[in-house]
Amino acid sequence: MSDSIVIIPTYNERENISEMIDVVMKQPSSFHLLIVDDGSPDGTGALVKAKIEEFPGRIFIEERSGKLGLGTAYIHGFRWALKKDYQFIFEMDADFSHNPEDLNRLYSACKNDGNDMAIGSRYVTGVNVVNWPMSRVMLSYFASHYVRMVTGMPINDTTAGFKCYRRSVLETISLDEVRFMGYAFQIEMKFLTWKFGFKINEVPIIFTDRTRGESKMSSGIIKEAVFGVIQIKLGSLFTTYRRPMEVSTEASAS
Rank of each mutant, 00 (worst) to 15 (best):
V247C: 05
W194K: 02
V6R: 05
V36D: 04
H98C: 15
T10R: 05
F60R: 06
I59P: 01
M25A: 02
T240S: 12
M117Q: 04
G152T: 14
Q27P: 01
G228W: 04
P154I: 14
S218D: 05
Y11P: 04
S2N: 13
F180P: 00
G220V: 10
L103M: 12
E246W: 09
V178K: 11
G77L: 01
S2K: 09
D102S: 13
F31D: 11
R242C: 07
Q186W: 00
C110Y: 02
T10K: 03
Y241I: 02
P204R: 10
F207L: 14
A50I: 14
P56T: 09
I21D: 00
D93Y: 08
T158H: 12
G114R: 14
K49V: 12
R179K: 15
G45V: 09
L34R: 02
D95S: 10
E188G: 06
I89K: 02
M149D: 13
G66R: 03
P100K: 14
E246I: 05
P154S: 14
S135I: 10
E171K: 06
P9A: 07
K67I: 08
G197C: 02
L33N: 04
Q87K: 15
A160E: 01
M1N: 06
I59Q: 03
A251D: 11
M25F: 01
H98I: 13
E202T: 04
N131P: 03
V23N: 00
P28R: 11
S121M: 03
Y86G: 02
V169K: 04
G213S: 04
M134K: 15
I61A: 12
N16F: 04
K195M: 15
V48N: 00
G77E: 02
M153D: 03
S144C: 15
V23Y: 01
Y11M: 06
V147S: 03
S174I: 07
I173T: 00
A94M: 06
S121R: 06
I35M: 02
E62I: 11
L68N: 03
S135C: 12
H145K: 13
L106T: 02
R167S: 15
A50E: 15
Q231I: 05
F227V: 08
F31N: 13
T44F: 11
Y241C: 03
S108P: 00
M217D: 09
D93S: 14
G120E: 10
I187P: 00
F180T: 02
A46F: 08
P9L: 07
L82C: 12
V147L: 06
G77W: 04
D85F: 07
L175E: 02
G182F: 12
F31W: 14
G228T: 03
E15Y: 12
L139T: 11
Q231H: 08
P154C: 14
G152N: 12
V147I: 15
I75L: 06
Y123G: 13
E15F: 11
K223C: 06
L175K: 00
L33K: 06
A118H: 01
R179V: 08
Q87W: 12
F238W: 09
P56D: 10
K26C: 05
L175F: 02
L170K: 10
Y123D: 07
Y165K: 01
P28M: 04
K199H: 09
V137F: 09
